[in-house]
């Protein structure tokens, strides 16, 4: 029962961060700021959602197969934790080298 409540809390907070990432992707005025929203929000949202699912998977009982499936889900989370910042960095670097100009503070105040 405790595990179920914990997993529901984790999944709902994950969905909240996914939501902020998407709203940031839509609202921010500039390419680099959009990267700010997606690069962080997606990583943390996926981490929280996946760990919530892994916790829920254990709630039926600690058998060997369910523990293995939970470890696999945490491996996916770890993979995303490593790979997502790298992908963000690659796209940002491509944008910088392609000559996309960043908006500065002075540009915004006009």
């Amino acid at each position: 029962m405790i595990l179920t409540i914990l997993s529901v809390l984790l999944i709902i907070s994950g969905i909240f961060f996914f939501f902020t990432a998407t709203v940031g992707l839509l609202r921010f005025p500039d390419f680099y700021c959009r990267m700010q929203a997606t690069g962080k929000g997606d990583t943390l949202g996926a981490l929280l959602c996946l760990s919530g699912i892994a916790v829920y998977n254990l709630s039926d009982g600690f058998t060997l197969s369910s523990v293995l499936v939970s470890i696999k889900i945490m491996l996916i989370a770890f993979f995303i934790f490593i790979a997502n910042p790298t992908a963000t960095h690659a796209i940002t670097r491509a944008g910088l080298n392609a000559g996309v100009k960043p908006l500065m503070k002075e540009d915004l105040q006009k």
Binding site: L25, D42, C49, I53
Partner: peptide, 25 residues
């Protein structure tokens, strides 16, 4: 720009990864 589209594809991919496991549940 083109790069915005790439970002969008990556974001959709991350969400799909979570969605597939939810479907499995």
């Amino acid at each position: 720009t083109v790069l915005d589209r790439i970002v969008s594809v990556g974001v959709i991919g991350t969400k799909t990864t979570v969605m597939l496991i939810l479907m499995g549940l």
